[in-house]
């Protein structure tokens, strides 16, 4: 009995040793296969990230060697009213944008999940805008949002609004205008939701229906919990994307007659734009690096918060 047990453990040990050898070999092979991405990541992501941490403690203009100044950049940032303006702009944009875009995409997906004729055509129509390249989309929308001749204001006028907003030219309406543009391009998220919705088993819905649940109840108590992970995925990626919002705002402000990067009264000076302006416009790379690090911390914090929030439902 005892002897047998000993022999078994011996055998086990051998097997474990064998396996470990195999694992090591596999690991080595695996690492070799993904080495391009590892090397690429180290050279083009990790190295710049570490360097930017160093630069954030220096006075660095790109053209001259960086000069160590300790935490001066961070101190300056917290005393810079324009920095706070960019933070507030970005937070406002993210806090309103994320729920707005996610809920719209979800509702669209629900509608497009109905089994009606021509549904494929509708799906394609809603998805098409998200295929339009970013810059083209931004230029197109700066015309749609044109105060006097824009499509949007023409429609508003024909509906009887005598003095429609100036959109991008008006500090209070510029951010809603940009959100409208993002809503138009929400097809990408819609497709993800649609796929998730189609993965919800019919049997669950069927049994809920048999238990007497109406369509709304099924949606709230069956569909939403089933696609919860997808919703969180979309919320997190959307939040991170909006915190770093740059391209469209850059194109729209360069296309405007005011020519100022932050738009009228800096109302669309988002975090990314201000960072770009300080770094590449004013050659304050150290300051821009410090801003980037704070943005990283904000993004991490937002992600952590959202994950905590999602844990509450487990």
């Amino acid at each position: 009995m005892n002897r047998q047990r000993i022999m078994r453990t011996e055998a086990n040990k051998n097997i474990i040793k064998e396996n470990r050898k195999k694992d090591m070999k596999n690991l080595r092979l695996g690492l070799l296969f993904i080495s391009p991405i590892i090397i690429g990541f180290c050279c083009f992501d990790l190295y710049p990230i570490i360097m930017s941490l160093y630069y954030s403690f220096t006075d660095f203009s790109i053209l001259r060697a960086p000069e160590w100044i300790g935490i001066d950049n961070y101190v300056e940032m917290f005393m810079d009213p324009l920095y706070w303006k960019s933070v507030l702009n970005t937070l406002y944009f993210t806090l309103i944008g994320v729920p707005l875009l996610t809920i719209t995409a979800l509702l669209l997906a629900v509608l497009l999940n109905l089994r009606t004729p021509l549904i494929k055509a509708f799906r394609a129509l809603i998805y098409i805008p998200s295929v339009v390249p970013t810059v083209a989309c931004a230029l197109l929308w700066s015309w749609i949002l044109n105060p006097n001749y824009g499509l949007l204001n023409s429609v508003l006028r024909s509906l009887g609004v005598s003095n429609p907003p100036g959109w991008l030219a008006d500090p209070t309406w510029a951010k809603p205008g940009i959100l409208l543009m993002l809503l138009w391009g929400t097809g990408g998220q819609m497709v993800i939701f649609l796929a998730a919705l189609q993965g919800v088993p019919d049997s669950l819905m069927e049994s809920a229906r048999l238990d007497g649940a109406n369509a709304f109840q099924i949606f709230i108590y069956v569909t939403i919990p089933m696609i919860r992970n997808v919703i969180f995925y979309c919320v997190i990626t959307q939040a991170v994307a909006l915190l770093q919002f740059f391209a469209q705002a850059y194109v729209m402000s360069s296309a405007s007659t005011s020519g100022s990067l932050g738009g009228s009264n800096n109302c669309t000076l988002f975090y990314g734009l201000y960072l770009y302006q300080e770094g590449f416009g004013f050659l304050k790379m150290g300051y821009a690096s410090a801003m980037a690090w704070i943005l990283l911390i904000i993004s991490l914090f937002a992600t952590w918060l959202l994950l905590k929030f999602s844990d509450m439902f487990d």
Partner: peptide, 22 residues
């Protein structure tokens, strides 16, 4: 993994800042 992917995206901003500096 979710955490990691969320981390990688802001990393792009950082690399944008640092890319002019090598």
């Amino acid at each position: 993994r979710k955490m990691l992917s969320a981390l990688l995206v802001p990393a792009m901003v950082l690399s944008l800042v640092a890319c002019g500096s090598t």
